[in-house]
Design a protein around this nucleic acid. Structure first.
Lengths: 332, 332
DNA sequence: ACATAAGCTGTAACCGGTTTCAATTATCAT
DNA sequence: ATGATAATTGAAACCGGTTACAGCTTATGT
């Protein structure tokens, strides 16, 4: 491989000078600069960013760790991050955890080794130490969507509590009284907030919560399917169901159809998080949606600001959700 | 930052020995190994992968460059790649090009500087030189879905030609004679193959192509919308339309609705590439689908095999498409 | 005219690892 | 016992950049 020493030799200058030209520093005479640049062009030299980051202590890389890049919710966020990052010549390293703590640990370890400049993570961990014990304290950390207990770091999320209330309000306004709820993954803040919002909204409407109507889920399709089957098997099934995210809704939907029922005639179904493309094809699922692209962009901003050092305190950005009324819930 | 020299000092050995322990090499006595490992554990030392890659000439990183990670087609592929890669302790760096040559160039340059071990790309370039002129010849290159003219490299794609024929055959079987076609992005192999397959299939059925029924597109929603509007404005619009990918279909769909028409009553619409989640919500769009997740896995395999050096000739893997009949086309 | 500052360039050390090589010791076959 | 071989370890060079520092030249101020 050709290095700046080779270039230096060819241009008849020192490596230091080549470095200065490449980095566009002051204190290089126009003639020298031109001489070096000619060689650079002729050879098509590409400096080694890893070598450079050794001394500069900057890899121009941010790591993004999400449960599932196949979920449009995260996809859109990643897009937002990538846009901001690449505009600033920063690369995005991507890790998938599948909601699996071991994979998440592996990802954290890996990105520490690679000395990523910052980390944006929708963590599958419940407690701070699951994360911090694998992370150096210095690395700028932005929490996305979820906040493990006790973790003080920048956080970008939406108002889950309020979102849940919007869904319940909406369903109650349609006349529903038995509102089923499929929970998110245990131990995850988002899951908890959504559940709490749901419970509180029920109370506001004078509807005592019915334990049987609340079943567990995992933020994945399979969990949604199983949860919905459980609800449908009830002696007195709910007239409508809220799932804790979009994927669960898909699973629930499959379960409903599997039982030969239809939405919204036999049962209403609403959820958190949109499936945008799906809704372009056929505006079916009524949801509360988060401003995903923006969230990604904001997360990237927060991370990048920390790179330049001037920030100290953890910041929390809470976005508003929007109820998108479509066809999956009906008046009863 | 603590380095292996610090560890060495604390353990009372040389840096070389620490390196050997970390990399689990032979020729370290059990006692020495244990002594060093104790220090490693106690300090929670994380070696700097960039430093290591300087000498090892391996970054354990593959770059993935796609037009739009928001498109489920690419998302699924990336997922396949990530799965394979992370199983082998290899990170994925992600770049978005938006079908923009400048962004693609930027991405290529960037990943060369980072010395990615391999590149998997769905390029927006038409000619080999657009790519090769920015790439070192040594970097393992896997083309995804698209093959710029003259570029000899591993290629993973589906049988676009055959896919087009399946769509035309299907439409003809339903009685359609005027089949509109919204083209893909100019200069991209996939776009060309799909068009050629369409033309050839028409001929097979004795349907001369009608220039007016073929309009241009860009693989994006906007292009699909404009194309469809053009088709609908025709004195004698086609009874059905094929779009060159899923996003264009979405645009076309919007255009059709915008004109107050409905699918499939007023016009049939089919396309290349599935929208899987959308079709789970409501199985609407009839498409020919590619085995996306597998394609990603295969692409990663091809790339990773080259890392270990033993491959020479470019390989081409052509997957079969599957017609998924749903509700967007009707018999006439 | 002369002290001082600014511009330009190269040497050498450094970033944090890996690896070659030589030195030392232990093991083994004969 | 002995020459050969294997195991263990460290010194030092190297990977490909950056940067502190020194030295020299030229510009500036008074």
């Amino acid at each position: 491989m050709t290095s700046i020493y080779d270039i230096a030799k060819m241009a008849g200058v020192s490596a230091a000078t080549v470095s200065r030209v490449i980095n566009d520093e002051r204190y290089v005479s126009p003639e020298t600069r031109e001489k070096v640049q000619k060689v650079l062009r002729k050879t098509g030299f590409v400096p080694n960013a890893n070598a450079s980051s050794l001394t500069k202590k900057r890899t121009n890389t941010i790591a993004v760790v999400v449960p599932d890049i196949t979920n449009p919710f995260f996809t859109e966020i990643i897009r937002g991050i990538e846009e901001q990052a690449s505009a600033q010549k920063i690369a995005v390293i991507l890790f998938n955890t599948d909601e699996d703590m071991d994979k998440e640990r592996g990802a954290l370890r890996f990105l520490m080794e690679k000395r990523a400049d910052a980390l944006i993570i929708a963590s599958t961990a419940s407690f701070a130490k699951h994360i911090t014990s694998h992370l150096s304290a210095e690395i700028p950390l932005v929490l996305l969507d979820r906040q493990p207990k006790g973790l003080k770091a920048d956080l970008v999320r939406s108002d889950d509590h309020r979102g849940a209330q919007m869904l319940v309000d909406y369903l109650v306004a349609l006349g529903h009284r038995e509102i089923g709820f499929i929970k998110g993954k245990d131990g995850i803040s988002t899951a908890r907030l959504r559940l709490e919002g749901y419970l509180q909204a029920l109370e506001k409407h004078g509807l005592g919560p019915d334990e049987k109507l609340i079943v567990s889920g995992d933020f994945k399709q399979e969990g949604g399917r199983e949860g919905m089957l459980k609800l449908l098997a009830l002696a007195c099934p709910p007239t409508c169901v809220i799932t804790s995210n979009n994927l669960e809704a898909l699973g629930a939907l499959a379960a409903i159809r599997q039982m030969g029922l239809s939405i919204p005639e036999d049962i209403s179904l609403v959820c958190f998080d949109d499936l945008e493309l799906a809704s372009q094809v056929y505006p079916f699922l009524t949801v509360v949606a988060q401003p995903v692209r923006t969230m990604g962009a904001v997360a990237a901003q927060l991370a990048l600001e920390r790179l330049d050092g001037n920030v100290q305190k953890p910041r929390e950005v809470v976005m508003q959700m929007t109820l998108l009324e479509r066809k999956s819930a009906r008046r009863v």
